[in-house]
Amino acid sequence: MAPPPAVAVAPGVFRIPTVGSWAVNSFALVDGDGSVTLVDTGVERAPARIVAGLAALGKHPADVQRIVLTHAHPDHAGGAKEMADRTGAPLAVHADDAGFVESGESPPNDKSYSVGRVFARLQDGRFPAVGVGEKLTDGQVLDVAGGLRVVATPGHSPGHISLLHQPTRTLITGDAIFNVLGMRYPPRFFCTDFRMTKRTAHVLGELEYDRVAFTHGPEIVGGARDAVRRFLAKSLTA
């Protein structure tokens, strides 16, 4: 069965599956004036899925006013150039990942683990380069659908961010936490600094939210904050 083109997470917040039903997700935030902010753009072939997701919401690429990337990896920034070209929207990413987006090359892998050293030799890690219009900083609140707060969670990449949509109390984790067969950290060989990834993810347990959406995995819409806090507490002893 084909996945739905768009899934409602909260009022005005929609998940757009770009690979499978939830393997890789982008998000559309619809503002009161009908404009759209995209969060992540999937792999290089994802724009067709994103455009279909927008159409299911009655939206067109011309409605997209801003594109925000959680980080500079091919499964999140691979479709950024095409979506920027289609929409004419400026691209925003944390300052520490901006150079990687503009060069079209992923940040380095964590080579303190043998699997990271092997993966670094095998992977390509490149994606279409695209210009960055805005370099984001921790704590910045974007004028998006009532307020989208930037939460720095570096480690998976140097400038990895999570996002908190304040009006609907919806957290988008980026790759700080996956929800694939249960909550888990991203594979260490995909991270620039896996230990930092685990350390900075704990800030997500200190925020206030009711729903949590994952770029890898389905959302949690009930008891989300408690679920995240239980996962983080358990990970301290793992």
Rank of each mutant, 00 (worst) to 15 (best):
L122T: 08
R195H: 09
E82L: 07
V151T: 02
V203H: 02
V115R: 13
F27E: 07
V141G: 01
L148F: 02
P108N: 09
W22V: 05
I172N: 00
L29Q: 05
R199K: 15
I220Q: 02
A6Q: 02
G58N: 07
K198S: 00
D85S: 02
E134L: 14
A92Y: 10
A238F: 10
R149C: 01
D85L: 02
G20K: 10
D210N: 03
T153N: 05
F100L: 08
G99Y: 04
D110T: 08
T192A: 07
L163P: 00
G104F: 09
D138N: 14
P167C: 02
D75E: 07
R121V: 07
G174T: 06
M1W: 04
F119H: 15
L181S: 11
A227T: 13
L204F: 11
R126A: 09
A77H: 04
T153W: 08
S35Q: 13
Y113F: 15
P187I: 11
A52F: 04
G155H: 02
T200E: 13
T200Q: 06
L142K: 01
A56L: 05
D33F: 09
P158W: 10
G222P: 01
I172M: 14
F214W: 11
L54E: 05
K81N: 02
D96R: 14
R49P: 00
L54V: 08
T153V: 15
P61D: 10
P186A: 15
K198D: 03
G79H: 05
A72Y: 14
V43W: 08
A129G: 03
A120Y: 07
H160D: 06
L171E: 03
E82R: 14
